[in-house]
Design a protein around this nucleic acid. Structure first.
Lengths: 370, 370
DNA sequence: CCCTTGATTGAATCCTGAG
DNA sequence: ACTCAGGATTCAATCAAGG
């Protein structure tokens, strides 16, 4: 993967680069509706305190009376409002965002996401398997951080690789609580003095799960608080494109060096389990046309209902006529019915769902795609 | 424990009673600085559209009660602001509050808590061991709810029974994520028709942990959204005083009957509250996410079969795709296969089963349980 | 009595493409 | 924008019934 640009409407995107400067200005300079996914790990209120200014630009002092505290929330809220608005503009209509935070800032981010019309899809808890203990024993060990996954708007057709995530979780659907270790050991980047290069480096396993779940290969992922580039490193591994924004030169340098060393996984490794929805549609009538089923033959349901196949690929059962789905639904008094799994036929003495015939056709299409 | 009143400054408190009517008016009628702890489970403002059916076509019994309907975020925010303000006035200076919610409302509650000068001590995640799945496969299983624990103000000397919680947790610090089952079975209260008496009854184990952690015997606990009285029932068991407020007569009746039956220090209830530790199940996908195995790497079987690892933790070998177990079984023509012992990798020149990687992760979990 | 099997259920912002 | 219809989609726990 090399640095390149990508056409997005009239303008181009600076792909696989780390932009310097203020993330709001940088995002405002990008074309609207051009980004597939944003991952954002913004600074927390506490860490911002030294930098905070009142709306009139006077410095906020460290006194913790109520007014000052409210004032600092207001400054943080303005900051949150502005970067979330800039992010929303550049997201594609079907784009989505992830934000991560702790109780210091995540409630304000979540409320502002909702206020701006983002549509929350899940809040996800990153449950740290090796958190820092609470040394003074005055509170519960702070053992998790919260992520919020939201689409640009309620109507967005967001990306979610359900089957891949289910595969990652040994065949049961992935839950909203993720147990993952914090970033330590050789993965934790050090600066020239051997100190940790960034105070809150996120583990690559976290980004791996986020990107496998909610992007596809080739998607463009933007991280406005790039830090030491975990998002970029994992995006590159997974065959995605990234755009990073980071105002601290020291972090940019570490990130560039880090990402240069990353190798992309090979193509076959990047394909993931897909759902049936992604497979080609096979009309039931095709089974009849192909002679796999004969008009006049009967199908049975698990509970003993019977229907007869007609030449046009519809079924008839007493006075009910229609598609395999409609007749199944009508006989069960159900709002809907998947006829492919509902109706069965006798084959070699065994009763099997007609879906196995569809699978045969799909296998053929796989071999000889048209 | 009987109904009684307690001197609180000039006024008295209606202890161990369920007050009817609006919780804001009722709280405003109580003396200031008189309550030790508030536990609040307000309406979540779920915004459900159509019906939802399970794959077997049964209909999900949704929370569609009038009390959960709000016209807009603005209306909900005003409601939240008013009841949180009323709650704060009646809390003692060293008092604290717990609120519980989901992503629909918890961010708005958290932000307003901060705005009003409450001091957040922890956000706590209730990880449900048996949540309702995501039936359509469109999102992550919504497997948790969030609690926020906050003191009345930053300077409050709040109650935290560190050692008791540590004991509850088999000798290690209690973390901010709690694994507890949802309320089902005989604990779930039924109405006269045998239907669930309340759509969102909380488990007693949850309240047990909250009250043991942050109150002492004799403390006064107020619940402004009392429902069927879980807070009151557990408070009574644990020798605390409670005040409930509930505007629905049906819920009040159920709660009164329930609490009358509760005996103090009910041993069985105590034993229910300590959740058994979950078996550490390690999905193969986690080895990939954690970088212990790389997508694209190959695994081998004892008899020389080869498979390649994909980014979602599945394997591919020629035209066979699936979990480590599925692919192993297919290649051997066997009905099943333990992929952990079947598949091997090269490590330090030796061929070893991938199970040693799982053992590594389990060892880590052993060291730092929970 | 035990064991197996099947039915039921839980705070849910739960479909999508063709016409 | 809309409607219509194909057809994809579930985990853990409790409890009752049957063997």
């Amino acid at each position: 993967m090399t640095t390149k640009t990508k056409k997005a409407g009239a303008a181009t995107l600076p792909l696989n680069q780390i932009l310097d400067g203020d993330c709001i200005e940088r995002m405002n300079a990008l074309p609207a509706n051009s980004i597939d996914l944003i991952f954002a790990d913004p600074p927390y209120n506490l860490q911002l305190k030294g930098d905070l200014h009142r709306p009139d630009n006077s410095k906020v002092d460290a006194v913790d009376n109520d007014w000052d505290q409210f004032d600092s929330f207001r400054v943080y809220d303005n900051f949150t409002r502005d970067w979330l608005a800039a992010a929303r503009r550049i997201l594609k209509p079907n784009g989505a965002i992830w934000v991560i935070g702790s109780y210091h800032n995540v409630f304000r981010m979540g409320a502002e996401l909702q206020n701006q019309g983002y549509w929350i899809l899940n809040d996800v808890v990153w449950r740290k398997s090796n958190p820092m203990p609470n040394f003074r024993g005055k509170r519960f060990t702070n053992a998790h951080e919260t992520l919020i996954w939201a689409s640009k708007e309620e109507a967005s057709k967001y990306t979610f690789n359900y089957e891949a995530l289910k595969a990652l979780n040994e065949g049961v659907q992935m839950r909203s609580d993720w147990v993952l270790p914090i970033c330590t050991g050789h993965e934790r980047l050090k600066d020239d003095n051997g100190e940790k290069a960034h105070p809150t480096q996120k583990p690559e396993s976290l980004l791996h799960r986020v990107l496998v779940a909610t992007t596809n290969p080739g998607d463009v992922i933007l991280d406005p608080f790039f830090g030491t580039g975990t998002t970029g490193a994992v995006a590159k591994m997974l065959g995605r494109e990234f755009i990073g924004i980071e105002r601290e030169e020291a972090y940019r340098k570490v990130a560039e060096k880090r990402i240069a060393k990353v190798r992309k996984f090979d193509k076959e490794a990047l394909s993931v389990s897909t759902s049936k929805r992604a497979q080609p549609r096979v009309p039931f009538g095709q089974l009849v046309e192909r002679g796999m089923l004969r008009p006049g033959e009967t199908l049975t349901s698990p509970r003993g209902k019977i229907a007869k196949i007609r030449a046009d690929g519809t079924l008839v059962s007493h006075d009910v006529k229609g598609s395999i789905h409609q007749v199944g639904a009508a006989l069960e008094g159900a709002p809907s019915c998947n006829g492919w799994t509902y109706w069965h036929l006798k084959k070699d003495g065994k009763t099997v769902p007609i879906d196995i015939l569809r699978q045969q056709i799909r296998a053929e299409m796989e071999e000889r795609p048209n």
